[in-house]
Each structure stands twice: as structure tokens, then as C-alpha cells.
């Protein structure tokens, strides 16, 4: 019991300078810099489509592409800078599950749109 306790105590003191470097690289990711970069990029990627739509700068397909492009880009920015997907150790199970999930989502969304396009009553 006493041993367990001391082990837990040692774990809790990881925050002390000098001891937490090796620990951080293993479990706790991210730095203030990466969060600030991610936040600023997200702000810009939100502002661009907003300005375009509110001022009617683009129309039709070009606008749709820009909007979806900004959203996907912001998704990637948050995955990298907020969720630290790139820092995952090998084997990269998180990335694999994500790709599988995105594949399923794309199949559902694209498949539904494709099928229902021909179902529209003209």
C-alpha cells in the first residue's frame, strides 16, 4: 500500500521542472505555440468563407468549393494543432480508425446525395 502510494506520489510530481520532459513527449502533447497557431488559422479559415458569403463575392460552384474547402482545411488544422494527430506514436491506430470513419461518412453522404438526385420529382 505504502509502495503504491509513493508511486502515485511520484507520478503526481511530474509537473516539477526537469522531470516532465521525457513524460511530456510520451503522453501529454501540445504546446502553447501549437494551440495559438491552430486558433489563429481556424479564425482565418472561418472568416474567409464568411466574408465571401456575406458580400456575395462568389457564386454557384466556386462558392460551394471555397466553403467546403475552408471547412475541410479547418478540420485538418484542428486535427493537427488541437488534437495532435501527427504526434501519435506507431502503430497509428487513431489515424487508421479516423480514415475508416471518414470513408464510411463519405460513402453515406455521397451515396445518399447521388441516389436521391435521381429521385427528385422534376
Amino acid at each position: 500500500m505504502a509502495q503504491r502510494h509513493s508511486a502515485a506520489g511520484a507520478h503526481d510530481s511530474h509537473g516539477t521542472p526537469g522531470t516532465h520532459d521525457s513524460h511530456d513527449s510520451h503522453e501529454a502533447h501540445g504546446s502553447l505555440k501549437s494551440y495559438v497557431i491552430g486558433f489563429l488559422m481556424s479564425l482565418v479559415l472561418t472568416a474567409i468563407p464568411l466574408i465571401v458569403v456575406l458580400n456575395h463575392l462568389l457564386e454557384g460552384k466556386a462558392a460551394t468549393l471555397l466553403l467546403l474547402g475552408s471547412a475541410v482545411l479547418q478540420f485538418v488544422v484542428q486535427l493537427v494543432y488541437f488534437m495532435h494527430l501527427k504526434e501519435e506514436g506507431k502503430p497509428r491506430y487513431n489515424l487508421m480508425v479516423l480514415i475508416l470513419g471518414l470513408f464510411i461518412v463519405l460513402t453515406i453522404v455521397a451515396g445518399s446525395i447521388w441516389i436521391m438526385t435521381y429521385n427528385k420529382v422534376a
Binding site: G15, G30, L32, Y35, G38, F82
Partner: peptide
């Protein structure tokens, strides 16, 4: 809606700051 968007984005950032504080033991 624009306000909602920026509020949620900022809260995502502050939840990251919470994790940073935790990693420093604060």
C-alpha cells in the same frame, strides 16, 4: 450564428489551454 461560431471556436482553444495547464501541474 456567427457569434455562436466564434464562441465555440474560442472555447475549443481554451479547453486546449486547460490541458496545457494540466501538463504543467497547475
Amino acid at each position: 450564428v456567427i457569434a455562436e461560431t466564434f464562441i465555440l471556436l474560442t472555447s475549443s482553444f481554451t479547453s486546449g489551454l486547460a490541458v496545457l495547464s494540466m501538463n504543467k501541474g497547475n
